[in-house]
Structures are given as structure tokens and as C-alpha cells.
Design a protein around this nucleic acid. Structure first.
Lengths: 337, 337
DNA sequence: ACCATTATTGAAAACGTTTACATTTAAGAG
DNA sequence: CTCTTAAATGTAAACGTTTTCAATAATGGT
């Protein structure tokens, strides 16, 4: 039988209460000698606390549930590593639940499991809400944060706190950066039609408009952030004579670089490229890809802090990482269609 | 206050025992009407089982601890997704603990946490053991499996069951495949000096020897499986006039492709390449990379099954995925040094 | 209608902690 | 040396389930 505090108490000639206090390191409520004795015995017996019992008695768990979208994003690794490190630092453990892929049943099941475990908090990473999930999460007293997802315009999302990059800013930054380099006919490829995509699109449009460059509707190609030289982004845009393209993710950028190579379009000589994300993929290509870089690790850190310290929503700063996929254009390239 | 089975029992005019039985779906031990009534009330009250209490009472947890190495490998995603799906299917939940990077303290702490949670089992993914960890795991009755790690020659590993690709076979397959395509001067790049690297090296050497191609010691370049065009693998091997290189991982392959491009070495015209892993990275490069492909998803699935059903160690089949990084050489290229 | 089974249910004892409250012991003030 | 107060420990009641064993109700055979 596994040893319990009772066994320790007996051997140490103290009560279980004292053992509990020592093992839980309750401040100033036991003599150092008592503590030493108890700790020695605990070690000798190979005692392991039964967390289930502890959580039951204390009405508090040191668990954080992380709910993840199943789609393989090459950045969730970073977020998760950060969440793990930060929860660990606070004496918590994280535990991961996958919520499939826009699968309402799985999502709600994951939430249910988290609540059954009476977790200290829930982190929804890159996962969009549905009506039922939103309701459940609103009703429970368990705190929750959305990570890398938000939507001020969707009532489903109101009341939920989030930690994310500012997608509008991302679109705006990327576009402005290209404009600063003399580009005018700028495309946007790979965004989806959900909140994230729309937000980036808005930023793009705003930057364009502010410079009097009304973006052509055809310059925007929708997608799902994934790799796809087969998506023929460039073929579709070929007739448009674009100066540059912003890709919605590094995966899209990599696909586009490959497509360009096959079509003998040189980057950046014939076409500039700036990607959104800034993961390691930007460094493995030729040329390396200039990106609007998101700080995914920091995002994870802040998400945990926000959850544990009940802080408000916040945007994680983004920045341009200059690499080699942009050329400098003359001041005013032609603009006729 | 959150509702408990007591509340449900009261409202349904039954005992808590009955409620427990219904909610746990104990076979044939209650009338359907009773079940219906209880389930209705549970739903109405928004009842959530307190898993801590259940685990405490039942002496069994439905948790699987997954202990992970911190190093970013682009395949652990697949393994983890599989573990999640498979544990879920069996009614378990998995929970992840990071063990740093050959960090003894963190590893043992992770194991300790897993044991405190009285998990049903532990999966060590791509994590090597140290003396203390091996001892702890041997002493406990909690079952455990190593995933993607094994070493028949290291006494630390004896007695531990594993699920992994056969690294010797991987090295052997890759080498043979190149030999079959007429290559003779074959290098091996990026392996480390731990068990995995040594095993792959042995397979490589065996295949070479079987064909009377004593491999030159200089043809093997050590590394750590990671991306590094800066590692100058090719520069180091330039004088060796190799026909082909086997890279220890896709990341190494990608780095090597980049290096080759910068050095104007054409792949596969000047140098053939076969990589080990076969992840998405093999598809995004130009040329696409022929690989010895590991079935990481299956590895995760089998690991969970082995753990839960107490099955023995097993190798997960690997196979060659032909892509475009190998050329066909004449039967007998020159072999003088 | 009666008895032997069998299917349902209930009562209550675990499970291993934490913690409020009570008690004892030690320490300090005068 | 006594009194007051603080520190250290003990007692015992939770916490919300599961499960054994006992009790009751339903069922079928005769």
C-alpha cells in the first residue's frame, strides 16, 4: 500500500494535521525540528501526496486546462511551451484537451472535462467559440481566457477576455512596411473569412486607403493559413501585376515561394513578400522571409498571468523582422490597372 | 454551490449510491426509468462530477501523463495528437509535462508530479532516462512506456518497454535505397552521439559493409537533428566527393538543402539526399525530399495501447517515401578515394 | 398463491487530504 | 514566579464520490 500522511504521522508521533501542514509548507505553523523529522520520514517512505484527496479537501485544484484546435499550426508549440513554463512557475500544471476542428461536440466535451476536473482556469488556444461553448463558459465561475482569438464585433465573444496579437495592426504594419518600400499594388493571400482573417484584412485596407491606394478586390485571395503551392495563388494573381504579396501565415508564404520558383517568378526581384507569424519557417527558405512577427511565447506567458491574476484582455506586441523577401522599389511605380 | 450527487439524490428520491451508479453507467444495475429521472435532474442542475472525489474513492485515475522533451521537434505534434485521440477513445485524458532538455531535475520533478496525480500510466516521449528517473520508474507500480527512445545496450533502459521506429532499420533502409540507386560514397549527417544516433549509424554501416563499401569515418558528421545551414555540413564534406547524404532529420535536410543552394550544389544532380522522418518539411522544399518516413501518429496510438493493455515493446514500421531528391546513378561509379 | 431467484435500491464505510477550532506548550513581561 | 500572549500541535469534521453488503422489490416456475 502506498504510504499516506497517516503512516508518516504515526512514525513521527504527531498528528496528520501537522504532517499536512509541513508537507504543504504552511508558513510558520510548525517547528523546524518537527518539519525536518517529518520530511525525513516522508522521504524514507517514498511518500507521494494523493493530489485527488488534497484537491477534494481543499476545494482547489492546481490544474489549468488548455483547449487546442486540432489544426496543426506551427506556432502552437511555442504558446504551449510558454504556458507550461509559466503554469509550472506558479505551481500549477497544465493539461491539454484537443477540440477537433470547428467540431462543436468535441469542443463542448473538452470544456466539460475541464469543468469536471474543477480546474483553476481554462485557456482556449486558437479555438473559436460556438454558442453553447460560450454559454457554458459564461455560466461557470471558472475563469477563462482566449488565446490568439478575439472578435469585438461578434456578440458570442463579448465578455470573454483574450490575449492575442492585434490582427488589424498586423495587417496594417505589413502593408505600411511594403508601401514604405515603394510598393503599391499589394495583395493579401491566405486569410480565412473568420474574425482573424477579417481583422487582418481591415488593417490592410486601412493602410492602403490612408495612402490613397484603394485595394482591388481581386488582390485578396482567401485560404486557410495552410501550405499550398497547389492553391495556385500566384497563377490567380498573375494577370494582376502585383508589386508584393502579404501572406496570412508562414505556411502560406512557404507555399507561395515554392509556387513562385516553379513559375520562375523571382522573389524579391519580381515580387516582394512579407509573411505573418515569423516562425522558423521564415529562416529556412531562400530567400528568407521578412515577416510581421508575433511573439507566441510571450502570448502564452501573458495568458497564464492574465488567467491566474485575473488581469484584463491585452494585445501582445508585434514587430517587423526584416529578412530578404522585399525589394526597394522606386518612389512611384505605375498604378494603372 | 455546485450541485453534487447528494442534491440529485434528494430531488430524485433515491440514494446517492443509485445516482452514482447511473452517472457512472454501471451495467445493469438500475431501472431505465430511474436512470432517466436521474439524468434529467443532473442535466437540469448542470451537474458536473467532481473527478477528484471520484478518483479518491475509486483508487483509479483516468489520467495519462505525457512527459516531453523541451526540444522543438516537428514530429512530437503528431505523436501527441495521436496520444490524445487514443486516450480519449479509451475514456482517459492525457496531460503534458515538460522535462526540459536533458535536465535531470525537471525530468524527475515531472515524474514526481505524475506519480502524485496517481496517473494510470506514464508516456515518456523522446525523453532519455537518467539513473534516478529509471530507478523511480522501476520502483513504482505505475506502468510506463518510452516513445521513440530505446537502447538495448544501456542497462539504464533494461526493463523498460518502448514504442519506436527501429533506428537501425532506418539507417539501413536509407543506405540501401541509395545503394540501389547506384550511390556508393554515402554520407550521414546530423545524428547525435546518443542511442538514437548510434543505432542509425549502425544501420548505415551495416548496409555499407554488406555491399563491400567500407564507409569512411569522415563521411559521418555529428549534430543534433536541428536546422543549421550554418553548420556547414557540406563545406566540411566538400572534399569528400560524396554521391549522397543521409540526414538524421528533416530539419537537417532542410538546412542542407539551403546550404547546397548557396554553394551552388544541385540536388539531386550533384548530390542525392534522403532524409529521416518524412514530415511536411519534405514537401515544402525544392526539390521535395525523399525520406525514410516514420509513422509518428501510429507510434502514439500504439504507445497508448501498449500502456493501457500492458502490451510489450514494439517497433512501428517505417517506409521509404520517394520524392525528388535522389538521382539514379550508373551502376558502378568510381570508388577510389 | 408460494418460493426461489434475480434485479434494484439503500445504508454506510471507505478514500487521503485540509482546516476550523480547541488545546497544549513555550516565551516574554512584569 | 505568575500572567498573558503567541506558537505549535491535536481533534475531528468536512470534501464528493464509489462500493460492499444488506435489504427490498420484481419475476418466473410450479
Amino acid at each position: 500500500m502506498k504510504p499516506t500522511i497517516k503512516d508518516i504521522a504515526q512514525r513521527a508521533n504527531v498528528s496528520t494535521a501537522t504532517v499536512s501542514r509541513v508537507l504543504a509548507k504552511k508558513e510558520k505553523s510548525y517547528r523546524p525540528e518537527t518539519a525536518a523529522k517529518i520530511e525525513a520520514i516522508a522521504k524514507e517512505l517514498g511518500y507521494k501526496k494523493n493530489i485527488a484527496a488534497a484537491e477534494l479537501a481543499a476545494h482547489s485544484s492546481k490544474l489549468i486546462a488548455v483547449i487546442l484546435n486540432n489544426t496543426q499550426t506551427n506556432f502552437s508549440n511555442d504558446i504551449i511551451a510558454a504556458i507550461q513554463a509559466e503554469t509550472d512557475k506558479a505551481g500549477y500544471q497544465m493539461f491539454i484537451l484537443y477540440a477537433g476542428n470547428h467540431d462543436s461536440r468535441l469542443l463542448n466535451q473538452a470544456i466539460s472535462v475541464a469543468l469536471e476536473r474543477h480546474v483553476a482556469g481554462i485557456l482556449l488556444v486558437a479555438t473559436s467559440l460556438d454558442e453553447q461553448a460560450a454559454m457554458t463558459l459564461r455560466e461557470t465561475s471558472t475563469p477563462c481566457r482566449l488565446v490568439s482569438v478575439y472578435d469585438e464585433n461578434d456578440p458570442k465573444y463579448t465578455g470573454f477576455k483574450f490575449i492575442s496579437s492585434d490582427n488589424e495592426k498586423i495587417g496594417y504594419l505589413a502593408t505600411n512596411y511594403l508601401i514604405d518600400h515603394g510598393h503599391q499594388r499589394i495583395g493579401l493571400a491566405g486569410i480565412d473569412r473568420s474574425s482573424t482573417g477579417e481583422q487582418r484584412l481591415r488593417g490592410y485596407q486601412q493602410a492602403m486607403c490612408e495612402h490613397g491606394l484603394a485595394p482591388h478586390r481581386d488582390w485578396v485571395v482567401y485560404g486557410d493559413y495552410s501550405f499550398g503551392p497547389q492553391q495556385n495563388i500566384l497563377k490567380g494573381l498573375a494577370s494582376k501585376k502585383l508589386d508584393a504579396i502579404i501572406t496570412a501565415s508562414d505556411m502560406v508564404a512557404v507555399g507561395l515561394i515554392k509556387e513562385a520558383r516553379l513559375l520562375n517568378i523571382r522573389i524579391p526581384e519580381d515580387l516582394s513578400l512579407v509573411s505573418i507569424d515569423g516562425t522558423f519557417l521564415c529562416d529556412i527558405t531562400i530567400p528568407t522571409i521578412t515577416s510581421v512577427t508575433q511573439d507566441f511565447y510571450q502570448m502564452g506567458v501573458l495568458a497564464v498571468r492574465s488567467l491566474l491574476k485575473n488581469q484584463d484582455s491585452q494585445f501582445v506586441p508585434v514587430h517587423i523582422t526584416a529578412r530578404n523577401s522585399i525589394r526597394l522599389l522606386a518612389e512611384k511605380p505605375s498604378l494603372q490597372n
